[in-house]
């Protein structure tokens, strides 16, 4: 935990922001999709995003969902752009590595569900970190 000279610990205020009714909808969808606890997701978001990002999460999630249909199934399944661009909580390089891994697994003939599951595992690992 970083020590601040004149900054306040903002985690409490951020938690208040992230538990509003519209955030709860997004959070429950994400929690089901990634099979993670809501508190784990919230902790990651609070650590990585500033307050206006946190306020804007429902709108950004909607934008991602709107462009979802034109994207490929790997994106839809793993949500790479969602987690790096729309809700920037994971580093893009590591996310790219995960994506490449999943794509190569699929091209090697491993069943898609299995490849997605391995990708999801590493994403879960990154979020828990």
């Amino acid at each position: 935990m970083a020590e601040y000279l004149y900054e306040k610990d903002l985690r409490e205020m951020k938690y208040i922001i992230i538990t509003s009714p519209l955030h709860e909808v997004v959070m429950s969808e994400l929690a089901v999709h990634y099979s993670l606890g809501r508190q784990v997701l919230r902790r990651k978001m609070i650590n990585e995003c500033d307050m206006s990002f946190l306020e804007n999460i429902p709108a950004r999630y909607e934008v991602w969902k709107a462009e979802d249909s034109v994207r490929d199934p790997v994106e839809r399944q793993l949500g790479m752009r969602l987690l790096t661009v729309y809700i920037p909580m994971l580093p893009p390089e590591e996310m790219k590595a995960v994506e490449m891994g999943v794509r190569s697994q699929i091209s090697e003939g491993i069943p898609e569900a299995e490849a997605y599951e391995s990708g999801m595992d590493s994403i879960r690992e990154m979020i828990r970190r």
Binding site: L10, M13, I16, I17, S20, P21, D50, M51, S52, E55
Partner: peptide, 12 residues
Amino acid sequence: EIELGYVKKGIE
């Protein structure tokens, strides 16, 4: 970055 919370009322 922006720091908010100065007028948080909890209207919802």
